[in-house]
Simulated assay, not measured.
Amino acid sequence: MKLKNAYLIFVALFILGSCKKDDDTPGEVVPPRLLSEVAAEDDAEIVTFLKTHFYNYEEFENAAEGFDFKIKFDTIAGANSTEESLFDSSKLITETISVASSDWGRNDGEVVDHKLYVLVVRQGVIEGKPTIGDNTILRYEGSLLNGKLFDGSSNQPLLINLSGVVRGFGNGVEYFQTGMGPIENGDGTVSYDGYGIGAIFFPSGLGYFSNPPAGSAIGSYTPLVFKIDAFAYEKDTDYDGDGIPSILEDVNNDGNLNNDNTDESSEPLNGRVPNHYDTDDDNDGIPTKDEINLDANGNFVSFRDTDKDGIPDHLDKD
């Protein structure tokens, strides 16, 4: 299933900018805070939210006719004092992801574990889940822990590549199976059935850290929440069309495609692109597609290593 031209193309809000400068000292770049310090603070905030809030799980478990299958969070207090917290829900999944402080402009050598929390309220009916390299069809809503919305999508499906968004969002969506569709509604819109539903909670180190989008409601060092409807995905997306499924371009196998750039040293500073966006990964003048093994239909078969040096041809300039 090819999704590149499906419906609406989502131009990512999630592109990271440069470090902010201190207004009191013009021209002096202020380094971001310690990654380890912020990670601990963010996780404490998220855990506090998860332990003091619940979602409308009873509505999902006993769905009445007309139920909209929307997640709603509320505080555990008063009439809701006996509700099961998000933290104690069997639907909550936790993943630990390592982040280097150098990703955020620090040179202190820190590599810090960050907790990603994924609430899978309803798993999709289609077996298989997207990878960080795949195109997906999603509906989402982004908010702060205090409930303030910063990004509410339209009700129509949006095409999103999971490596073109902040890491917590992309890695979180990997936990969702998708649904059946698209189903034409007869009015120019489409819908899906049996899709995955849930929410993702993650610290700023997996989001924007010290560089939130200009003009947004997101502040520096702010944990984020996304409610997700996972409609569909394109298995083995080849984003740059170089013949290699994007997920196989994770050279260092760290679950992050954006830090794999084999020919970075030979690319201009303002033109550097990771391998999954690059049709000539080693910049040797030979397209990647001509340095791998494809079948008669142009589908990836295997990597080629002509000189037997352990480096695939498409990553080996010599």
Rank of each mutant, 00 (worst) to 15 (best):
F231Y: 15
E95K: 12
E58M: 09
P213Y: 08
K129A: 04
N211V: 14
A199W: 04
E61D: 15
F150T: 04
C19N: 10
N258K: 11
W104C: 06
F54K: 01
Y221E: 04
S266Y: 09
N211L: 06
F202P: 00
E110V: 01
M180C: 11
N135F: 11
I218A: 01
G188E: 05
G170A: 07
F231M: 11
K21R: 13
L206Y: 01
T82M: 00
I160G: 00
P157F: 09
F54S: 00
Y140F: 11
F87P: 01
K317A: 12
L13D: 05
P245N: 10
Y233E: 06
D238Y: 02
E264G: 02
K20D: 09
R167I: 10
D23Y: 12
G109A: 11
N135S: 13
N258F: 03
I9K: 15
Y55T: 04
L269T: 13
E291F: 02
Y57D: 08
F176W: 13
I200W: 03
L206I: 05
G105R: 06
N275H: 11
V121K: 00
E174G: 07
W104M: 08
L162S: 02
N161T: 15
G128P: 02
N261I: 13
L13Y: 03
V47D: 06
I218G: 00
S266R: 14
G215F: 13
N261Y: 05
D187R: 01
T82A: 05
F202I: 04
A39K: 02
G243A: 08
G133W: 00
S89A: 14
F87G: 06
G170M: 04
D42T: 06
V30C: 12
V190I: 15
L315K: 12
L116E: 04
K289V: 10
P245K: 07
L13I: 08
I197T: 11
P157V: 09
T96N: 13
P274H: 01
T82Q: 04
L294N: 12
I218M: 02
G17W: 09
S81D: 02
D242C: 10
Y55R: 07
W104G: 03
D313W: 01
Y140R: 03
R106A: 07
E41R: 00
P287M: 07
Y175N: 14
I311S: 04
E59N: 06
S98R: 15
D193E: 14
A217H: 02
G219F: 04
I97L: 11
N185V: 07
Y195S: 05
S101K: 04
I15K: 15
L144S: 02
F54V: 00
A296F: 12
L248T: 06
P223F: 03
L119C: 08
S85D: 02
L16R: 05
D108P: 09
L138M: 14
G188D: 06
L144N: 01
P274W: 02
